[in-house]
Computed example of a mutant assay.
Amino acid sequence: MTSSTPGTRRPGGRTARTRDAVRAATLAVLAEQGYQGLTVETVAARSGVHKTTVYRRWKNAEGLVADALELASGEPWPVPDTGSAREDLRALAQLVRSGFADPEMGPVSSAFIAAALQNPVAARALSAFFAERHRQSAAVVERAVGRGELPAGTDAAEVVRAAVAPVYYRLFISGEPVDGAAADLGADAAFAAARAGVYVT
């Protein structure tokens, strides 16, 4: 990663504090105003970091979004471990559903997706974020293969995608309600398909 990448510097000390302040301000603005309201000026005012510093390190709204997603991708994801692949996949789908339903973080998550639909920099950052989430979540499938619940060679990331995809479809495509039953149904379908060998590569 080059030094020209928005928001990247060697971590530690004042730089780390500045990055944390800017990230917190970015998330707050996204929660309150969405991606359309995200500007360097609003983040600078909210964070207390001088506007010229924000411009120099993050360049623009896309750089702010990309850096916030980069930081988020490095945070641990509470991957469930119930001892059952079906229940683990259900728990993953419920984590996604409850995240978007959260009054504080839900609007932020929706704003990230809106940003990705409008800007290639944000789109690449969101893709990397999801790749890391899928990598972490793949453990539920890998454990299931080890227990003999799912066939060897099952593509773990594809099963995870299938389990959570119906939640995103309802939220961002069809606009249908996403309740607990709907999330469970998507996870159950992914588990049944995986058990039948659909995702064996």
Results as ranks from 00 to 15, higher is better:
1 M>Y: 02
3 S>R: 13
3 S>A: 14
4 S>F: 06
4 S>A: 09
4 S>I: 08
5 T>S: 15
5 T>W: 15
6 P>R: 14
10 R>H: 00
10 R>D: 03
20 D>S: 14
20 D>M: 13
22 V>M: 06
23 R>G: 04
24 A>Y: 05
24 A>T: 04
24 A>C: 05
25 A>H: 09
26 T>D: 11
27 L>W: 05
28 A>H: 04
31 A>R: 15
33 Q>A: 14
35 Y>K: 12
36 Q>T: 06
42 T>L: 11
45 A>R: 15
46 R>Q: 11
47 S>E: 07
50 H>S: 10
53 T>H: 13
54 V>H: 00
55 Y>P: 03
56 R>G: 02
57 R>N: 14
60 N>R: 00
60 N>Y: 02
60 N>F: 00
61 A>Q: 01
63 G>H: 01
64 L>R: 02
66 A>W: 00
68 A>G: 01
68 A>K: 00
71 L>A: 10
71 L>T: 05
73 S>C: 05
74 G>Q: 02
75 E>M: 14
76 P>I: 02
76 P>K: 01
76 P>M: 04
82 T>L: 12
83 G>E: 06
91 A>Y: 05
92 L>P: 07
93 A>I: 10
93 A>G: 15
93 A>V: 09
94 Q>T: 12
96 V>C: 03
98 S>G: 02
99 G>L: 04
101 A>C: 12
102 D>C: 03
103 P>C: 05
107 P>V: 14
107 P>W: 14
109 S>N: 12
109 S>A: 13
111 A>L: 03
112 F>Q: 03
113 I>Q: 12
115 A>H: 07
115 A>K: 07
116 A>T: 07
116 A>N: 10
117 L>G: 15
121 V>F: 00
125 A>E: 01
127 S>C: 04
128 A>E: 15
128 A>L: 15
129 F>D: 04
133 R>P: 03
133 R>G: 09
133 R>L: 11
134 H>L: 12
138 A>S: 15
138 A>C: 10
138 A>P: 05
145 V>G: 00
146 G>A: 12
146 G>H: 11
146 G>C: 06
150 L>N: 03
153 G>W: 10
154 T>G: 05
154 T>K: 05
154 T>A: 06
155 D>P: 01
156 A>C: 09
159 V>A: 02
160 V>F: 05
161 R>A: 04
163 A>V: 13
165 A>Q: 05
165 A>H: 10
169 Y>E: 15
169 Y>K: 13
172 F>N: 09
173 I>W: 07
173 I>D: 10
173 I>K: 06
173 I>H: 09
173 I>Y: 11
174 S>A: 11
177 P>I: 06
177 P>A: 14
177 P>D: 12
178 V>C: 12
179 D>E: 14
179 D>R: 09
184 D>M: 06
187 A>W: 10
188 D>M: 01
188 D>H: 03
191 F>S: 10
191 F>I: 10
191 F>E: 15
193 A>T: 06
193 A>V: 01
193 A>M: 09
195 R>C: 01
196 A>I: 07
197 G>R: 12
198 V>L: 08
200 V>Y: 09
